[in-house]
Simulated scan of single mutants.
Amino acid sequence: MTTEAQSTELTHFDQTGQAHMVDVAGKQDTHRIAVASGTIRMLPATLAIIMQGNAKKGDVLGIARIAAIMAAKRTSDLIPLCHPLPLTRVSIDFNIVAEKAMIICTAQVETLGKTGVEIEALTAVQIGLLTIYDMCKAVDRGMVMSDIRVLEKHGGKSGDWTSLIDASSGQA
Rank of each mutant, 00 (worst) to 15 (best):
Leu129Trp: 07
Pro86Ile: 03
Gly170Ser: 10
Val90Thr: 15
Leu10Val: 14
Met145Ala: 07
Ile66Glu: 05
Ser168His: 07
Leu151Pro: 07
Leu47Arg: 06
Asp160Gly: 00
Ile40Tyr: 04
Ile104Met: 14
Ile66Cys: 02
Ala124Asn: 10
Gly38Asp: 02
Gly159Glu: 06
His12Val: 11
Gly113Arg: 05
Val24Gly: 00
His20Phe: 12
Val139Ser: 13
Met143Thr: 11
Val60Thr: 00
Lys114Thr: 13
Tyr133Ser: 09
Ala55Trp: 09
Ala64Val: 03
Gly58Lys: 05
Gln6Phe: 13
His83Cys: 04
Gln6Leu: 11
Gly58Arg: 11
His20Ala: 04
Lys137Asp: 08
Val109His: 06
Leu85Pro: 08
Ile132Val: 15
Gly53His: 03
Ile96Tyr: 01
Ser91Trp: 02
Gln108Phe: 00
Ala172Ile: 14
Thr30Asp: 09
Pro86Thr: 09
Ile103Asp: 13
Gln6Asn: 10
Gln126Pro: 01
Thr2Gln: 08
Gly128Ala: 03
Cys82Met: 10
Arg65Pro: 04
Ala67Arg: 08
Leu43Asp: 12
Asp59Phe: 08
Ser7Lys: 00
Pro44Ala: 00
Asp14Asn: 15
Met143Tyr: 05
Ala34Ile: 01
Leu112Ser: 09
Arg32Cys: 06
His83Met: 03
His31Lys: 12
Arg65Thr: 15
Pro80Trp: 05
Asp29Glu: 13
Gly53Arg: 01
Gln52Tyr: 01
Ser7Val: 04
Ala48Arg: 12
Ile96Gly: 01
Lys56Ser: 12
Ala68Arg: 01
Thr3Ile: 12
Ile50Gly: 01
Asp134Pro: 13
Ile119Thr: 15
Ser146Pro: 05
Gly113Met: 01
